[in-house]
Structures are given as structure tokens and as C-alpha cells.
Amino acid sequence: MKKFSSLLRKAFVTATAGLCLLGMFGNTPAAEAAKYGDVPLTDAINAAGSNLGTSGLKQNQLAAMMVAVTWPEVIDNSAPTGYREYVPSPMTVGRADVSTANGTMLWADGVVSSTYKYARAHWSAGIGVYQLDGAGMGANVSLHQAVMTDTASGVVAAEISRLYTNATGTAVEKRRAAWKPWYGCGTNKINCENNYIATYNATTDALNITRDTTVTRSGGLQTKTCYTASAPTATWTCYRWDASLAQGHKGSWQYTPTGSASLQPLPLPFYTYYKYDSAVGKNVEYRHWLKAETGYDNSKWGARVFGLNPRSGVNWYSNSTLLVQ
């Protein structure tokens, strides 16, 4: 993703700090407030309330710490008027994993090439507004749980609260510790600190965030019913991810869909679910790219055992027999 130049960032930070001061006196115009999905914000607040523990944080305060990471993680920082005005999209998939890690198995059949015929059957590692990654906090959740803001917020609230509680130091230092998992928070976590200050009024314990009702919990992820031809009565819930249906800001992750040497492909629509496989005693996440929707000559599919880094842990297959009602 493109990011602010340092100069623009400084100007932006100065401007938002000024807005923050206005906000502390209750005079911030609504148009200048940060924007966030309506239900996604409620989900963050509810998750915060369930994970305060002994942190000493207030519910809105923890929620502000949570959503603070979303803008630098998923919004294009080069937006001219400040990235907090763009609503993070729950269906965001990370695109900039190229050459950052041992990521060959994110690519269909392990072929790392944007010109490979199945390149857009691509397993994205970082998912959702919090960019839960299969190597880290997303290791033991499925794609749809990383997208859905209720389940994603639960994991994030728990981790942030725990880090904050366990860390020593001032409140600022403890917040820095709590944001450690998100590199996008920047050096000394200044990006997230600025977002936190801009969106949380410590005096009134109020959030200064405008709710956008067009961005839902699922962010456009569709709930479907899946089955196989060999057992048509054995159905299960699955989910359809289609970039064209994504809600929220898409400019930061929906461009150059075929990818490049420095950009992963934008996945074509796929179906996903996770099952407990009693034969092997494991949770397994699946993503199926059906040829009827991709236009490929084969229905590619991938599987990842929970806990494994998808960069090396996805197994790829052909000829998916998945059917969707």
C-alpha cells in the first residue's frame, strides 16, 4: 500500500492534533471526525468491555486503542485530507507481503509469479480491519472470523488489553507496548498514538468517531451454504469473499489486481470455511476458487492447518468439488 510521505505525515499529524484539541472542548465538526463502520465500532466497544480485566482502561479507551491500528494498517495514507476520514473495510486483504517473508505458499501451487495462470487464486495472509495475520494473531482463526468485526475484535481486544496490563511504564509506554503487533503503527507507535488521541476524549471518556452505517460487520462477506456432490445432504455454512462487494474504503487495496513484483495479486472471488477434521484432529481453513467464477480452467483450492503460518503452511490442490447452494 502507498503511504504518506514523511512530510505529508507531519503536516497531517499537526492538523489532527489541532482537531484533537478542538475535540477536547467538544467543538470538533462532525465532518472532521474519524469515520468507522457503525456495527464494527459497536463490536470494538463490546469486545473492549469484555476484555478490560485488570488493565485499568475504560471501555471506550480500549476501543479507541483498538480502532487506532486500523487506519495505518488498511487505509492508503496518501489520501489528501487525512486517512481517518476513510472507513476501514472489513474485507481488506493485505497486498504488500511480497518479499517480506518466506511466502511462496501464499501463491497458487507455490508459484510466485503474477503472470502464473492461477495467480489470482491467492491466499492473503493479513485479513480484515486489524490485518490479523496467519503467522500471529490470526493463526488460530479463520478468514471469516478475521473479517467479521465481532470475532476479530474479540481477539484484538484480548491481546491489546493483556499487553497493556502486563507492560510496565507510563500510560504512553504501555500503549506502545499494546500496539507492538502492528508494525503500521510506526516508529514509537506514533501513528496509532495520534489516532488514539484524535478519537478518544480522556476527559469525557467519549469517542470522537462518526459512524458509517454502510459498513457492516461482515463488510460485504456473504454467508452461503456449501456441500459436495458426493454428499449433497451434508451441508455447512461457508462464506463468499468478492472484492467487488467490499464495503468501506477500497482504494488502498483494490488496485493493480494482477499484482506486480512488489504487490500481491488481488484474489478473485472465493469460498471459505473452516472445519474440524476428526480424521487428523485439526482445525483446517479452506479457500476455493471455483472456475465458474474465476474463468480459470481449473477450480483451485488451498488448505491451511490452524496455527501454521500460511506463507509456508498452505497446501494447494486442483479440481475442487465444492458446490454452493
Binding site: 472445519k275 474440524y276 477434521d277 490442490y317
Partner: peptide
């Protein structure tokens, strides 16, 4: 957070 289904019969078998 529970699975979408528990597979006792090898549906989508051979997957891992």
C-alpha cells in the same frame, strides 16, 4: 469461534 462443521466423514478429504 467454533468450526463451520465437524467433518467425521472425509468431506473434502485429502485436503491436508
Amino acid at each position: 469461534y467454533k468450526p463451520d462443521f465437524v467433518d467425521n466423514s472425509g468431506l473434502m478429504g485429502g485436503s491436508i
